[in-house]
Design a protein around this nucleic acid. Structure first.
Lengths: 237, 237
DNA sequence: ATCGTTTTTTGAATCTGATTCAAAATATGC
DNA sequence: GCATATTTTGAATCAGATTCAAAAAACGAT
């Protein structure tokens, strides 16, 4: 009957309310300060009600991550549709990623935290699955681009699997973000901050994959213009 | 007077005792289960004494990390001394890194956790400095290899700084480990586990830097033999 | 060896904050 | 309108890190 449908919807709405409020609180004072009781109160619910949605604080943080990755996905889907050479599109993924992470610095820190064993193990199995599921479409898009590049003859896999090449770009992105967000690290080793370092290394990797057309890094202008072009297309200038 | 020297030494010994015991407990039941009171008791000291060495639990975990990185460093120093082409040595760093992380899986998880804002912020400033200091010699070795490669004409930086190139390899290593150690991730995306994926991508990156001599990835044997050779040299076969 | 002083150690008490659960409130079906 | 089932509540519980006043040990002068 219709009653239970309404209930289900209301429940979903409340869940979003909790997540919105959590996001707000985190933006205000960082996710370390987030307290379950305070969050519940901020939404005019009792603590126990919050626990009907999230089995633990970790579970809540993971839910937050899962929701964020919808935004992430949206950006990637735009790139998937883009009619452009494959090499431009794979690099656009990195630019989008970089931009996203810069704007949502809190989110990077959170994801770093959530992926930690300490947190991962304390979330519900369902939530873990949900978060892994969120990665699927992103993975599909990236490996789709790799596959298209191979099909179009832009990229000779030389025996490597599609996933392996996708994994390479992913790992480089991931590692760069980790290093960038590790407190005091760049400063301690006097590495200039900013996205260009990562962009150049990413293009070195793509060049090393022999992903055509190769990019000439000896001319700084070339990369600069490419980045500008991509940012323009993505509307994130 | 000599008295205070002895005290200092005893204090240092006790600190090592605590760290040894912590390592043991962590090996037994994971670092999530580590409890300050239990650790103190296991060493026949009161909780408060433990806090004379470490300002917080996070501080202790970081101290553990710092100690581990001495082992790390030792491995790298061996490579620094190695008389071999620069390209072989930079790659040897990755192999050593990979091997170390595989053997000390607990340590990778711990370092992932420790680098998290939540933990970082709760350690003492002194400890944070100590940990960053530990990275210095490693950084020096890696960028030293890059520099030597440039000097020897194996590598044309094309305007990039030494650190930028070192950063690229570092990020790729780091990112690969993060992905490898993220629960269920490789399985969810059916990426084969094992070091070869990373090794191949690392060589793609090095090829992309035009680091001579380039490695031919179309012949799997070539890389396999190189890895074997390096492992043999490092005595980690 | 003794005694007053300083330093170190002790562990029970405190504190924070997540989690639970019995009671109260609300909704549902008849 | 009533009996039953479901949901919400928030005070009580629990876990475990951290503190700190008191006890013990070390020190140094006599």
């Amino acid at each position: 009957m219709g009653t239970s449908e309404r209930k289900q919807r209301e429940r979903e709405e409340r869940e979003q309310l909790f997540l919105d409020a959590a996001e707000q609180l985190i933006a205000e004072e960082g996710f370390l300060q987030l307290q379950m009781a305070r969050l519940a109160k901020a939404c005019d619910y009792a603590t126990g009600t919050l626990y009907q949605h999230f089995t633990s604080k970790e579970d809540l943080l993971m839910a937050l991550m899962a929701r964020q990755s919808a935004l992430h996905l949206e950006l990637f889907e735009r790139i998937e549709q883009w009619q452009a050479p494959s090499r431009q599109r794979i690099f656009a993924i990195c630019v989008a990623e970089q931009d996203f992470n810069q704007r949502q610095a809190n989110y990077v820190k959170l994801s770093q935290y959530v992926m930690t064993e300490a947190v991962w193990e304390n979330a519900s199995e369902a939530r873990r699955q949900q978060l892994l599921q969120c990665g699927q479409p992103i993975c599909r898009i990236v490996s789709g681009i790799v596959q298209q590049a191979i099909d179009a003859g832009d990229l000779d896999p030389q025996g490597a699997s599609t996933m392996e090449l996708a994994y390479g770009t992913w790992a480089l992105c991931q590692g760069s973000h980790t290093l960038d967000h590790t407190q005091g690290l760049l400063e301690a080793f006097s590495i200039p901050r900013g996205p260009m370092t990562m962009y150049r290394n990413m293009n070195r990797l793509l060049n090393g994959m022999q992903w055509q057309p190769l990019l000439d890094l000896s001319q700084p202008k070339v990369l600069q213009q490419l980045v500008q072009h991509i940012e323009q297309h993505l509307g994130i200038a």
